[in-house]
Design a protein around this nucleic acid. Structure first.
Length: 751
DNA sequence: GACTCCGATCTTTTT
DNA sequence: GATCGGAGTC
């Protein structure tokens, strides 16, 4: 067992103590993945356990894939037989096999968040409720929260407490919406992300024989990132491990950052109470970071109350101090980060791939990107809008989904009029209403449309039905690639995009080709036993932004949210946007009063760094299209000043930490405003656009004479600076004063 | 029904 | 900055 060499004592214990319940508390950088990998390898090698009897659950596809590769390196091809995957993918697989018990078809569709929201919007409209009150997001969150706590719509409706809560929130119809949403999903043969867990629980609760089957199959159950499990996930794993009691959970309460998604930190804090004979192993030695970084991380997390006591330590060198960059604006922040990366690269001969820039929200990436482009540093963005969320991709996938499952309401709405068949919202609405009234599926309605809708219905609808039927026939004896190609061609999607010669249309066309490539890859991958279209869709519906990252050039700077960075490490880490309201997030604080989770997020970000950590903040920032003043984050004050070194080469020289003052901040703000006024004010002649173009915000000035295609000539009276110059008040000669949104208004400037 | 224009509105993080 | 939806027009 040579893999046991070089492990420290707790790591070794984590690997060899395979029997009975165990909880491994793994501090940041303590070699968690290594232990988990070796533990599984040890089960197979030393205990001769069949990989088929081992279930290993992770949160991301990436983590699952990486672990599978690492295990393969130790035990070889046998690793393929492990039941290893995300909670969602493993349980989707089980649900497909057992769908009949729940009254679902085996080819059920998985609704992503967009589908769920769209369905909720439709329902809210049908119920004639106020869409402003019943916002899709809010309703979905409420439903999702209930499902994550395993509260069915029946239980929800029967519980007066929930109703009282909803009434207090001015949303008394929430229970009804939950009911209709669930019924609609079921009738569409669709499960949303939460259903994959919720229904697994139902399955195991109502069908003991099914539960028994899996209980006996999984002799060993391992859970990675246990701190991020919600109650629903926890109950499932506990049930599965109930027979053999070989459950091993690995996690770090200090890195629990998914409470917003229902993760319950109590799962890890209380785990030992659920198992009397539990073995608890604490891995506290950090192999990743310098002493300074470990110390700073420790001092930050020490402020949290809810945690398991541990002392993370390291024998690494003390390393550099933490750098602090102070910027006057978000754009300057980007420039500072870019210059700093540039200089580090030059001085220390570090690769692009050794850098990562982490931020709280995806929208912050823009300023950083611009700055990196300007100094010619290659970068990639991880996460954000994923490939599979693009419109054209979703369109084609919807065709495939609808071919496989004719009842998939959301796909139907997407494609029934794409390309245009003259079937507008009116008809679609009638179809949905008919389905709802007769409690039948959409397919039944459109197959026999004249029984349900009297009056004019475009004849093209029957053409659509025939098209789908033909697809269905073809798909049966084709692999996913041939099927997808056929659908792309014959649906007309490919043709429509091909004929669109705009830059956008071109990229859309390329994206569709890219999707077809992905299908090809899926079909050619020998690991996949099933290569039909249904199998491809199953895989795709659980992919996320991270999983679709396949840039060829690997020597690039990585940009991503802190959430995405969990589990990764880089030599140099930049944490940007350390401002009150942004990080910690204003929303988080007001909605959940959970500063501790934000602090854990900060902890996760800090502990990604191996050698150098740089923090930065800006004093002004564009948010929601508006220029806002910002204050440095309280988190900066939580770091002992002796660990911080202000980077004076680029930043303001005044000390902001620890004695920052209002007057200092204001003086900087004045500078910023002066500076930006000088930088951005255009002088001299303006280009007069040949036609009417949406106005260039920066080109417009008070007093200018302008021409509008409808309103004719006028004079600019005022520009709304508060809104970053987005609105202009114009007095037209014949139409009086109008306020125009400059991103839309078409104006021609006259001198 | 399709299309265009424009005001209103919303932004946390992800399976 | 991007997206949604209402209003108006063809």
């Amino acid at each position: 067992m040579q893999y046991l060499d070089g492990l420290n004592e707790p790591q070794r214990e984590g690997v060899v103590n395979t029997e009975g319940p165990a909880m491994i508390i793994a501090g940041a950088g303590s070699g968690k993945t290594r232990v988990l990998t070796y533990r599984i390898a040890h089960l197979v090698n030393a205990h001769k356990v069949d990989p088929f009897n081992i279930l290993a659950l992770t949160f991301t596809n990436k983590a699952a894939l990486e672990m599978r590769h690492r295990i393969e390196n130790v035990i070889g091809a046998e690793a393929r037989n492990l039941w290893m995957g995300t909670f969602h993918s493993v349980f989707a697989r089980i649900l497909r096999a057992e769908a009949g018990f729940l009254g679902y078809p085996a080819n059920f569709t998985i609704y992503d968040t967009d589908d769920s929201k769209s369905l909720i919007k439709t329902i809210v409209k049908e119920q004639e409720l106020d869409e402003k009150v019943y916002k899709a997001n809010v309703v979905l969150n409420r439903i999702s929260g209930a499902k994550n706590r395993m509260i069915s719509w029946q239980a929800y409706i029967n519980n007066p407490e929930y109703f009282a809560e909803d009434e207090a929130n001015m949303k008394p119809k929430m229970g009804k919406l939950y009911r209709i949403y669930s019924e609609r999903c079921k009738r569409a043969g669709a499960m949303d992300f939460d259903d994959l867990l919720f229904n697994t629980n139902i399955l195991f609760k109502n069908h003991i024989d099914v539960l028994n089957k899996y209980q006996h199959r999984f002799n060993y159950v391992l859970v990675d990132e246990f701190q991020d499990t919600n109650i629903s996930q926890y109950i499932i794993t506990r049930k599965l491990a109930a027979v053999h009691q070989n459950i091993c959970v690995v996690g770090d309460d200090a890195q629990s950052i998914y409470a917003f998604r229902g993760a319950d930190i109590r799962n890890i804090l209380n785990f030992e109470k659920d198992y009397s004979d539990i073995k608890i192993i604490k891995m506290e030695q950090n192999y990743r970071s310098t002493q300074n970084i470990v110390n700073v991380a420790n001092s930050v997390i020490a402020r949290n109350r809810a945690q398991i006591h541990k002392q993370v330590w390291t024998t690494n060198q003390s390393g550099e101090l933490i750098s602090l960059l102070k910027a006057s604006s978000d754009h300057e922040e980007g420039r500072l980060v870019a210059s700093s990366i540039f200089e580090e690269k030059m001085q220390n001969k570090i690769q692009n791939s050794d850098f990562a820039v982490l931020y709280r929200t995806n929208s912050q990436s823009r300023a950083i990107e611009e700055a990196l482009r300007r100094v010619n540093i290659k970068y990639k963005i991880v996460g954000g809008l994923s490939f599979y969320q693009r419109r054209e991709i979703k369109d084609l996938l919807a065709y495939m989904r609808f071919t496989i499952n004719h009842n998939d309401e959301e796909s139907f709405k997407r494609i029934v009029n794409l390309p245009k068949r003259g079937i507008g919202p009116g008809t679609i609405n009638k179809i949905l209403v008919a389905a709802e009234e007769h409690t039948i599926s959409i397919w039944e309605v459109i197959e026999n449309i004249h029984q349900f809708i009297h009056g004019k219905v475009s004849a093209t609808l029957s053409g659509f039905v025939t098209l789908i039927k033909r697809f269905e026939l073809e798909v049966n004896h084709k692999d996913a690639f041939d099927a997808a190609t056929l659908i792309a061609k014959q649906s007309g999607i490919l043709k429509e995009l091909y004929e669109d010669k705009t830059i956008e249309g071109l990229s859309r066309y390329e994206n569709v080709q890219e999707l077809l490539n992905a299908v090809k890859e899926f079909v050619d991958n020998t690991d996949n036993k099933d290569v039909n279209l249904g199998a491809f869709l199953q895989e795709v519906s659980l992919l996320t932004g991270v999983d679709t990252d396949k840039s060829d050039d690997n020597n690039v700077v990585t940009l991503m949210t802190i959430h995405m960075a969990k589990g990764l490490e880089f030599k140099n880490i930049y944490i940007v946007g350390l401002e009150e309201d942004l990080f910690p997030s204003q929303m988080m604080l007001s909605s959940r009063a959970d500063l501790e989770e934000e602090r854990r997020l900060f902890y996760v970000a800090i502990t990604r760094a191996k050698e150098k950590l740089t923090l930065s903040y800006a004093l002004t920032r564009y948010r929601f299209g508006r220029l806002k003043n910002c204050e440095p984050s309280r988190f900066l004050d939580e770091i002992e000043p002796k660990y911080i070194q202000v980077d004076t080469k680029f930043s303001f020289s005044e000390p902001v930490i620890p004695n920052r003052t209002k007057s200092f901040i204001n003086s900087v703000r004045r500078d910023v405003q002066k500076k930006s006024a000088n930088t951005f004010k255009k002088t001299g002649d303006y280009t007069v656009s040949p036609g009417f173009e949406p106005s260039d915000t920066s080109a417009l000035e008070i007093g200018m004479k302008v021409e509008h295609p409808k309103f004719g000539y006028g004079k600019v009276l005022d520009i709304d600076e508060n809104g970053a110059g987005r609105k202009a008040k114009v007095k037209f000669d014949n139409f009086g004063e109008k306020t125009l949104l400059l991103s839309f208004a078409k104006l021609r400037i006259h001198e």
